[in-house]
Amino acid sequence: MNWLDDVVTRLAAADSWGYHGESPSATEPTALSALALLAHRRDQAAARPIAWLLSQQAADGSLGIDAAQSTPGWPTSLAVLAWQAAHGTSLASSKYSTAIQRAVTWILQIQGSHVEQTDVMGHDSTIRGWPWVEGTHSWVEPTAMHLLALKHTGHSDHIRARDAVRLLQNRLLESGGCNYGNTVVFGQQLRPHVQPTGLALLALAGEDDVTGHVQKSVDYLERELPRQAATESLCYGLLGLAAQRALPAAADAWLGAASRRILSRGPSSYKLALLALAASGAACPLIPATQARATS
């Protein structure tokens, strides 16, 4: 059995989907598990995490971080992606359409808090995106997640989606890559991080690279990934490169090494799902349709 078969088999056998080996189900790892199983044609195994997500949707359309915490609602975006991916499979159901509609309505009501622009910070603090927690500022990762949800559900041209694209482009560093969402503070450019860079490039798939910062971000990931051992960063980095049609030839070897590392430590559904999604490359259901068309 190769590493990927092992990972997918373990994921299909899971009866809870948490961040760590023994932890209870949480929305993000459950949604990613469903997406990974669907990516590898394990539809029946995906039915359980998808059903769990449906059971977690609140009256306002949102999903909290787990069954015990109904807020914040940032994982709602990931549930939308899982339900949307199920549409094209044997699991297709009108229940998903209703759930998606309610979730998207909630997503469009949420926006980051405006922060007065000053010359201390380098980014444009007036662009609307999504916060981690309602009432706070817009940051890269929740904005990328919600942009992906809008793109996958046919809202690519919605003004909020266009704002999100502008925000992500604005938060890319001059030298490439991005972090959680600050660029320059007190005159110094901050350091980029692999995971948010990968997620931002994933969400920006198919968008014009007017400033050249997307290409610089691709270059950054190509430099960093060969020495990246951590699972989440490696997987999001590869997904970002796949979305930008720059998947490195060594991807499978890197993922195999990461899988051996986490399997020796008591794997979680979260990391297994990320490995399986990253291994699906350009066919990953997280990659927006515009890019999928371009690569097919």
Partner: peptide, 9 residues
């Protein structure tokens, strides 16, 4: 997971 990255709350 509850307060964000950064813990902006």
């Amino acid at each position: 997971i509850k307060y964000g990255w950064p813990k902006n709350v």
